[in-house]
Design a protein around this nucleic acid. Structure first.
Lengths: 215, 215
DNA sequence: CGATTCGGAGGACAGTTGTTCACTCACTTC
DNA sequence: GAAGTGAGTGAACAACTGTCCTCCGAATCG
């Protein structure tokens, strides 16, 4: 009973992961719609036909990559918005989480930024779906905060989307600093600008009702 | 002296434009790094080798497309921020300009959104350069407004970038509504959300000094 | 008018692509 | 331990790619 999972199935999942890893590596310098099936299998070291044992399509592989890249996103909402107390601490934490995530998984972030509006419909929809769920979760978390009492669900959602878009844009902007003159300094500037911008949005949130009470 | 421009040069520029148009059309359903040179010349109706008379590379064609797509951007700053008086009118005007621009040039907008983080470095840099100039111009325009008196150039630039990013994101989001169930309604929701979000940012701007006076 | 320039045509080149088919052979199952 | 499953192989297919070279013919120039 030492192999309840099955040697075969384990080996299959290992080459499946190898395909995902190889594709992610190749996608650092091209986009999914130009990636070749043979290109991927060649870098893994298997025959081209073996690819079909795992995916019908390169698009299907792309969707799997989206899951891998954005699946861990949801745990972050809790980390930032629930475990932290105080607006300033939340801003600091949110930006820090993004910064750290880009440093740890640059290829995943690049993939999402590139394919969010890329040429493969299925992948675009997968990313849009994940970000939509993410926005909903942030809105839900915001609703529990004292600063958002009395807000409609719709307003909370628009605010959440504003935060999410800003974090996604920030992640992409951090990546772009990699080939700058002084990469680390440029990165610090982007992160600082993101903190400033989110703080400004928060101030807008706090004064919303007083300024533009909705009819 | 009726042909000072030259029949030859005019014909050349006409096929050059045909190449750009054909490429833009093909790029609606794929990304630049997967676009084929022969694919483009085939839809134009010329021999593959004729391509080299106009561009060394498909990347070079891409850079030309960036110029075509984003070159008209700078005139918009004046339209929105100078010709309009009053914050509310400016917000309305900015969002309306984006909405109209996406409706008139959807392929150009899609191209920019797709290639902003796409697989061709030269095109990425061209887009980044244009958006950078755009941000600088918005910051400059903001500086003339009474609401921004006493702000540092750095703060104005971060605020401008926040506006620019929001408008770019909105343009891309509008495009995504094209294949929704009720496209026109979804589009209206996106536009309304953008207005709401920009209004909130503006409120943050107005209360910035009072809340977080910098040392 | 003659000479020259140059946008475009057409053929040919070696490589690459996705997909098919029949196959092997280690693992699983009974 | 025999039968069956299924991940991976390897050859072959037609279709396609970017680029090179030579050539044509109309627009330009002196």
């Amino acid at each position: 009973m030492s192999h309840t999972v099955g040697v075969r199935q384990a080996r299959k999942q290992r080459t499946r992961q190898a395909l995902l890893d190889a594709a992610l590596g190749l996608l650092e310098e091209q986009s999914l719609s130009s990636l070749g099936l043979r290109e991927v299998t060649r870098t893994v070291g298997i025959a081209p036909t073996a690819f079909y044992r795992h995916f019908h399509d390169l698009g299907e592989l792309g969707v799997a990559l989206v899951e891998e890249a954005l699946g861990s996103l949801h745990a972050m909402v809790r980390t930032v918005l629930i475990e932290q107390a105080g607006v300033e601490a939340q801003i600091e934490s949110a930006v820090a989480v993004v910064d750290r995530h880009v440093r740890e998984y640059p290829a995943h972030v690049r993939f999402v930024a590139r394919e969010r509006h890329g040429g493969v419909r299925a992948v675009r929809q997968a990313i849009a779906g994940q970000l939509d769920r993410f926005g909903a979760e942030v809105a839900e978390a915001l609703a529990t905060q004292p600063a958002a009492q009395g807000w409609t669900a719709r307003d909370l959602r628009m605010l959440a989307d504003l935060f999410v878009d800003r974090l996604v844009t920030t992640a992409a902007a951090i990546l772009d600093t990699e080939d700058a003159d002084d990469a680390e300094a440029a990165r610090a500037r982007v992160v600082e600008a993101a903190r400033w911008q989110i703080r400004l949005i928060t101030i807008g949130q706090q004064h919303w009702k007083g300024e533009a009470g909705e009819g």
